[in-house]
Amino acid sequence: MTSAPPATPSHLAFVESPVQLLNVLEWACHAGRPDLLVVVLSPTDPMSRGQLRRMARLARDEGYAVRWQEARGGRGALPRALRDLAPALLRAERVVVGDPFSRYVQLLLTLFGPRAVTVVDDGTATMEFAAQLTRGERLVRWHRRGRARDARELALAPVTALARRRLAPGRGRAVEIFTALPVEAPEGATVTANRFAWTRARFGPPRLTWGADLVGTSLVETGVVDPDRYTGAVAALAAAHGATRYFAHRRESVEKLHRIAVETGLEIVRPDLPLELIARRGPIGRTVLSFPSTVVHTLPAALAGTGVTITVCRIAPEWLRETASPRAQGFLAGVAESARSAHGLSLTAA
């Protein structure tokens, strides 16, 4: 029986996605921190909310305090959330964040300067965060197109600049990056490897099926990849590898998934938990195909010793849309190559 959390937790985590909450649990398990309050800054899309509620139940079952904050609940939600969260921020010894690029998290960090900060994975953005921190650049998501900043971004520039300073190592402030991704530690920061010990202890090992499973991505929804090229690539991969199921990303549109189902015959699976837990719980294919994304680094750790083979599917340059950032091709290629070098994964083309 897990002991109840303390009344005034000394460690505070802000999460906005199911994957962030999973990695906060992994960090708390690794660090041995029962004195943790998890604040869910609730998103608006139903898939993310549903997965987050299930992850919140898992966190409570582990004995952690969880607070659900309707941070985007219409007019007045933001100032109300800032007022409600200020006391916890002021007494926290360490703040754990899942998305350093989040405007919401950046705004919260302007309320005070935490003595210690831990950044956990929320996709491949961790790689870009570490690189930008090292180079002293402003925080910008890798898939944002390189253009002049709009009025809203200019208005928030002081907030972003202050948040960046408070996410960087400095006098009296320790910074840790807890990650399953291959990142170089910025000067003054530490990098701790996420081996998914909590996931492996709580779930599985999975039953393996003889077929292959394909992991979806939201690169179409973020304006990086052309939808026709993407659907064609999924069809080609399914035919070449005998894939039968398509595990959808929570941000993939219903229209796109319907098209994939009709044109490829794949069974569309919309997971109710992060894929690392779904795969570990099983059943899962003996071969898992994925486009360059976080899972090509997290699944090898979560599925270690199970016999599952993970293959990375390259993104061809001609798949990219005009709206894609000039950095997109190099970044995605780097994710694929780093997965091969770090985990020995094979690469394939559609």
Rank of each mutant, 00 (worst) to 15 (best):
G188A: 07
R171H: 07
P182E: 11
P186F: 12
P182W: 09
R200F: 03
I177N: 02
R200I: 01
R171L: 12
G170S: 04
G170M: 01
W198K: 05
A185S: 15
F178Y: 15
A189V: 08
W198F: 08
V183S: 10
T199S: 12
G170C: 02
A197F: 00
T179K: 06
A180Q: 14
E184N: 09
E187A: 14
P186D: 10
R171C: 02
A189H: 07
P186V: 03
A180T: 13
G188Q: 08
F196Y: 15
P186M: 09
E187D: 12
T199W: 00
G170K: 06
A193Q: 12
A180Y: 12
R173D: 03
E187H: 11
L181M: 15
R195Y: 06
A185L: 13
P182N: 12
T190M: 11
R195C: 04
N194S: 05
A197Q: 10
V191I: 06
E187I: 00
A185P: 09
T199V: 15
V191F: 04
P182V: 10
R171M: 02
E184F: 02
G188I: 02
L181I: 08
G170V: 01
P186I: 03
G170W: 03
G170F: 02
R200P: 00
E176M: 01
R200S: 02
R195A: 14
A189T: 08
T199P: 00
N194M: 04
R195K: 10
R200K: 04
G172H: 02
F196K: 01
V183G: 11
T192I: 14
T192G: 07
A189G: 09
